[in-house]
């Protein structure tokens, strides 16, 4: 088997190697920050596959992140399911919900699609509040101490250790990154871009574009669910705030900043934005103004994002 776009593949490996080294250089605090960035970047990569490559702008991806978070968290909290299995349940939760929502939402396009995904996500959020006796509502649930460690193939894993958490996050980030490399740089990725660029033409070349979009939507939802499950289990907390509209906007913003339709854009965008938000966290209310201003500014002057602009100007293989 030959690897397409070898330069990009090499770059991905370099980035992964650098991230691995980072844990030996950075302070504990920064390692923790980087752990969060990696998990949110997984979420953004899932979002980017749909929004950047396939051209479907969802305003409701928080629901898939939350589906993973709750499916995994509740399975562990109430069912006592072991963490690795709860994690798989979380991925399935995101994927299955995305498949069902996709069946409906993909009957619409562009603006309708945005509103429909927003509405479904709002329903999901309200459901987490309505059933707060189960979900803990906006107070959330803290997973039991027994769930702070697990053993996998005889290997004891302690989730209270920042280094362990970092390496788990990095491993899963690497798996998703390489997986998405295979998807986006090969024939399937070309089809996604074809749907984005000209859906009618793609239909007239013999493709069932509804199915292609449903596939993209489901993969995207499953990856978002994976990120949600990982977040909930690693930090031992699940709460409805992850299902809020704001989360959907954040992942959109991460993707926009990094560069929609570029493989590494979500990592860059998530990194830049989380760092920025951390800096601003002293002024809590200013944070949303920055988000607002950025949404407008990017749209006006910077629609391709950081890596997208670099790709268009200098590095065409960065896609």
């Amino acid at each position: 088997m030959t690897i397409p776009n070898k330069k990009l593949f090499a770059l991905c490996l370099v980035v992964l190697a650098l991230l691995f080294m980072a844990q030996f250089v950075l302070s504990n605090y920064l390692v923790l920050a980087l752990t969060r960035i990696l998990i949110l970047a997984i979420f953004a990569m899932g979002y980017n596959m749909l929004m950047g490559y396939t051209g479907l702008l969802s305003l409701g991806h928080a629901m898939f992140f939350a589906a993973g978070l709750y499916a995994a968290g509740l399975a562990n909290y109430y069912g006592g399911v072991s963490l690795p299995i709860a994690f798989v349940i979380g991925i399935l939760g995101g994927g299955v919900l995305a498949f069902v929502i996709g069946l409906l939402a993909l009957r619409t396009q562009t603006v309708s699609f945005m509103i429909v995904t927003l509405m479904f996500a709002q329903v999901a959020y309200l459901l987490t509040l309505y059933f707060s006796n189960v979900t803990g509502g906006d107070q959330g649930l803290t997973l039991p101490t027994a769930s702070r460690s697990f053993s996998l193939f005889g290997l004891a894993v302690d989730l209270t250790s920042p280094m362990v958490r970092f390496n788990i996050a990095l491993t899963l980030f690497a798996v998703v990154l390489i997986g998405l490399f295979a998807v986006t740089q090969g024939p399937l990725g070309r089809l996604f871009v074809a749907v984005r660029e000209n859906i009618n033409r793609t239909e007239m070349l013999g493709f069932d574009t509804y199915r292609i979009r449903l596939l993209a939507f489901t993969i995207s939802g499953a990856i978002s669910g994976l990120a949600g499950a990982l977040y909930g289990l690693m930090f031992g907390f699940i709460g409805s705030s992850f299902a809020e509209f704001r989360s959907s906007i954040e992942v959109l913003l991460f993707t926009l900043v990094g560069g929609p339709g570029t493989l590494l854009g979500p990592l860059v965008g998530t990194g830049v934005m989380t760092m920025l938000i951390d800096r601003l966290s002293g002024m809590t209310s200013a944070y949303l103004i920055v988000v607002g201003v950025l949404l407008i500014v990017i749209n006006l002057w910077f629609p391709k994002g950081i890596l997208g602009t670099i790709r268009d100007r200098w590095v065409p293989w960065l896609k």
Partner: peptide
């Protein structure tokens, strides 16, 4: 004319 404007010539036909 109904093509994929931002793709390369080769990629356009590759989709077909």
């Amino acid at each position: 004319t109904n093509i994929y404007p931002s793709m390369s010539v080769l990629e356009n036909v590759a989709v077909a």
